[in-house]
C-alpha cells in the first residue's frame, strides 16, 4: 500500500471513530457537561462535523468536566501574548514564502516553442 493510500485509509478510520464518538457524545455526554444543551436538540447535528475533526479534544474535555477537574480560573486567562509572537514570525515567514516562490518562477518566453509533430507514416 502506498503512503498516500495509507493516509487516506487513516483519514477514513479517523472519520468513523469521530462518527461513533459524536453519536455517543450528542446523546449521552452533551447534557451532562453543559446545562444550556439540556433540552436543546436542533443544534446538535451541527456539531457532528466538528466532533469528527477534533474528537480527541472532545474526549479529553468530556473527561476533564466529568471528573470535576475543570479549573474555572483558566477560562478567564486569554492567551493574549501569542498574537504578538505569531505576527513577529509571520512578518518574516510570509514575505519569505512569497518572494522565494516568485524567484523560482520560470519565464514562459524562454521555453522551447511548441512543435507540431508529423503523424507517423
Amino acid at each position: 500500500m502506498s503512503f498516500a493510500a495509507t493516509l487516506v485509509l487513516m483519514a477514513e478510520i479517523w472519520v468513523w471513530i469521530g462518527l461513533a464518538i459524536s453519536a455517543l457524545f450528542l446523546t449521552i455526554g452533551i447534557g451532562r457537561v453543559d446545562e444550556d444543551a439540556r433540552g436543546a436538540y436542533v443544534f446538535r447535528p451541527l456539531l457532528v462535523p466538528g466532533i469528527i475533526l477534533i474528537w480527541p479534544l472532545v474526549l479529553w474535555r468530556w473527561w476533564i468536566i466529568e471528573t470535576g477537574r475543570d479549573d474555572w480560573a483558566k477560562r478567564h486567562q486569554p492567551p493574549r501574548a501569542f498574537h504578538a509572537q505569531a505576527w513577529m514570525v509571520l512578518a518574516v515567514v510570509i514575505p519569505l514564502i512569497f518572494l522565494a516562490a516568485l524567484a523560482a518562477r520560470q519565464s514562459t518566453e524562454l521555453l522551447t516553442p511548441p512543435v507540431l509533430l508529423e503523424a507517423p507514416q
Partner: peptide, 8 residues
C-alpha cells in the same frame, strides 16, 4: 457551544 465546552 464549542467556546463554552472547550473554554475560551
Amino acid at each position: 457551544f464549542w467556546m463554552k465546552f472547550l473554554t475560551p
